[in-house]
Computed example of a mutant assay.
Amino acid sequence: MKVTFLTWRDPDHPDGGGSEVYVEQIARRLVARGHEVTVRSASYAGAPSRETVAGVVHRRSGGRLTVYLRGLAHLLTREGRDRDVVVDVINGLPFASPLLRRHGVLALVHHLHREQWSIIYPDWRGRLGWFVESRVTPRLYRSVPVVTVSEHSAADLARIGVESSAVTVVRNGLDHGARTAPVARSVTPRIVVLARLVPHKRIEHALWVLSQLRTETAGLRLDVVGDGWWHEQLVAEASRLGVSDLVTFHGHVDDPTRDRLLAAAWVMLLPSVKEGWGIAVTEAAAQGTPTIGYRESGGLCESVDDGVTGFVVADRSELLAATARVLGDADLRTRLSVEGARRARLLDWDDSAERFEEALGTVGRNRVSGRRR
């Protein structure tokens, strides 16, 4: 099949995150299975407008909002009309593909963004964004099959009117062939955060935990892995809390460096307000590092088995207590580490791609049938 993903960013975008990793991993494996795959996303400094990576054609144009107009306009071109399936990646805002295509559209939704809208835009823009996502999008895509990454996200979609029968869950995987050699755990306690530096990841909560534990946990350090437009605010918060000397902001790093930092840590904190699945959890578990995050995030209740591979907690005080418990109990860390690594081995991008391909096949066949009618 000829497949185009319409998405707002690619994995190398400065604001790229787990959603973009998911698209890239699936796209590469679809190419390996014989499909022709293009990913259309926003442009950014230093990125070519067109390149091919691992067989996937990347075409970049438009900015934060105009990427949606560019994607929609593409569907009017000969190439756009020739696509068997358009995967409309909905990260809060849709590309509105059903306006131009009656058949051959598949929606990909990682999670809903109600909390993010109110955090980033605490005014009419946030209310408008949530109105579009929760009211307009379900109506516009009412006949479009949907792929999402967790049962929790599927339940959220049902709550805004998406038919459960239209939703397929295809979880995040892991590229086991790309794993680096095991790295020794740090001899001194280390906490790690792997996330985009944006407000709704609430990395401030990890900084607060560090400030509370610094006196009772000798040698404690925090590694923040990732970058984003909230970086300076986090640096300022670390200074305000008096922990600047205990925090290292690593920014974007390559995969081997990411794995080394995850493997060295005793525990990962992921205090996000919302996660579809939390690919960082899987990456950490592959290195034997357990994760603690919030129950309200939704997806972490599936990617973290509470008390078995990590902990999901209710609030900041419980986050602190769980972190102190893990840091102070070597036997507990070992149990969480062993079981987390075992379960991570069960997740594989090849399996995810196979499931995704099945969803694509159904959509592609429906388009052929629609053409015949």
Rank of each mutant, 00 (worst) to 15 (best):
H103W: 13
L65Y: 15
A341W: 06
H110Q: 15
G126W: 03
A264K: 09
E216V: 09
R60Y: 09
P98R: 07
Y44D: 05
R342D: 03
E302I: 01
V368E: 14
D123G: 13
V85K: 08
L241K: 03
E357W: 04
V243M: 00
G16K: 00
G251W: 07
E275V: 10
L30Q: 08
P145F: 01
D315A: 01
S272C: 11
T323E: 02
F95I: 05
H252W: 14
A42H: 01
E296K: 13
A73H: 04
E358Y: 06
S272L: 04
A96P: 01
L6G: 07
L93Q: 01
V167H: 07
V146H: 11
L222E: 01
E302H: 00
I203L: 12
I279Q: 15
G242R: 04
E133K: 00
H103G: 04
Y44K: 12
V224T: 03
R345M: 03
D84H: 13
V368L: 14
F5N: 04
W229N: 11
V247R: 03
M1S: 12
R202N: 10
H250E: 09
R343Q: 13
G17F: 10
E216A: 11
T66R: 15
T180W: 02
T257K: 10
V86Q: 05
S239K: 15
G293F: 11
R59Q: 14
S143L: 08
S153L: 11
L194T: 08
A54H: 11
A285T: 05
E318Y: 02
R102P: 01
K2G: 06
N91Q: 14
W349H: 03
G278K: 02
G92L: 02
G177A: 10
A322Q: 05
H200K: 06
S97G: 09
S186R: 06
G298L: 01
Q116N: 12
E357R: 13
R83M: 13
A54I: 01
D10A: 07
T334F: 01
S211H: 00
A178N: 02
L128W: 13
L270K: 09
R70Y: 10
T323I: 08
L213V: 03
A344L: 08
V253K: 05
K201I: 04
A206L: 07
W266F: 11
L157V: 03
V273M: 12
V87F: 03
Q212Y: 00
A42I: 05
T7M: 09
E24P: 00
S211A: 14
H110P: 03
A45T: 14
I120Y: 05
D254S: 06
V53Q: 11
E216D: 13
L197R: 03
F249C: 08
